Lab assay of single mutants.
Amino acid sequence: KQVQVGDEKYTFDTPEEARKFAEKVAKEKNLKVTEKNGNFHVE
């Protein structure tokens, strides 16, 4: 599963790991997490 933050992409083995990372980054940057096709976008 992938997490996209701006132009950066991070790959994780499980959706749970990806979601945790996305939520942590979103909180730090005051952004929101959206899920698209099983991948997460922080925007």
Rank of each mutant, 00 (worst) to 15 (best):
E43W: 13
N37C: 13
K27T: 09
K29C: 15
L31Q: 08
N30Q: 08
K1F: 15
K20M: 12
D7Y: 11
Q4R: 10
V25F: 08
N39P: 02
N39V: 15
V5D: 04
T34W: 11
D7F: 11
F40C: 05
D7S: 12
R19W: 07
P15I: 14
K9N: 09
E28G: 06
E8Y: 13
E17N: 06
V25C: 13
V5A: 03
E17F: 02
K20I: 12
T14G: 05
N30V: 04
L31E: 05
E28V: 07
R19Q: 06
E23S: 06
V25N: 03
A18E: 00
F12D: 00
G6E: 06
V25T: 07
K1W: 15
K20S: 12
H41M: 11
T34C: 10
V3I: 03
K27Y: 11
K27N: 10
E28Y: 07
F40S: 02
H41P: 03
G38M: 04
V25P: 00
N39T: 14
V33H: 02
E16V: 05
F12R: 00
G6M: 07
H41D: 06
N39Y: 12
N39R: 10
T14S: 12
N39W: 14
E43G: 14
K20F: 09
F21L: 01
Y10N: 01
E8R: 14
G38L: 03
A26Y: 04
D13W: 06
V33I: 11
V33P: 03
T11W: 15
Y10D: 01
T34Y: 14
Q4Y: 15
P15K: 13
N30R: 08
D13F: 07
V5N: 03
V33D: 03
G6V: 04
V42Q: 03
K29Y: 14
P15A: 14
F21P: 00
A22M: 04
K20G: 06
V25D: 01
Y10E: 00
K36D: 09
K36P: 02
N39L: 11
K36G: 04
F21G: 00
P15E: 14
T34N: 08
T34A: 06
D13K: 11
D13H: 08
Y10I: 04
E43N: 09
Q4G: 03
N39F: 10
Q4A: 06
K1C: 15
G6T: 02
G38D: 04
N37E: 09
D7G: 12
E23V: 07
K9P: 04
N37R: 04
G6D: 06
E28M: 09
N39C: 12
V5L: 07
D13E: 11
V3M: 01
L31M: 15
K1L: 13
Q4F: 15
K1H: 15
N30E: 07
T14E: 06
K29T: 08
F21S: 00
K36I: 14
E17K: 05
A18W: 02
F12Q: 00
E43D: 11
K24W: 12
A18T: 01
Q4D: 05
V42W: 03
L31R: 05
K1M: 12
E8V: 14
K24P: 00
E16L: 06
R19V: 04
A22S: 03
E17D: 09
A22Q: 01
K36C: 14
E16S: 08
H41A: 08
N30L: 06
E28F: 06
E28D: 11
T11M: 12
G38H: 03
A18L: 01
N39H: 11
G38Y: 03
G6F: 11
K32Q: 11
V3E: 01
D13S: 13
N37M: 06
K1R: 14
G6N: 07
T34H: 10
V3Y: 03
K1S: 15
Q2E: 11
V33L: 09
K32N: 08
F21M: 01
V25R: 05
V33E: 03
E35D: 06
L31H: 06
E23F: 13
E8K: 14
H41L: 14
E17G: 05
K1D: 03
A18Q: 01
N30S: 08
A18F: 01
A26E: 02
V3G: 01
L31F: 09
N30M: 07
K36E: 09
P15M: 14
E43Q: 10
A26V: 02
E28L: 10
R19F: 07
V33Y: 07
N39A: 13
E17H: 04
P15W: 14
E43Y: 14
F12N: 00
Q2R: 08
E28I: 09
E28Q: 08
T14V: 04
G6S: 04
E8C: 15
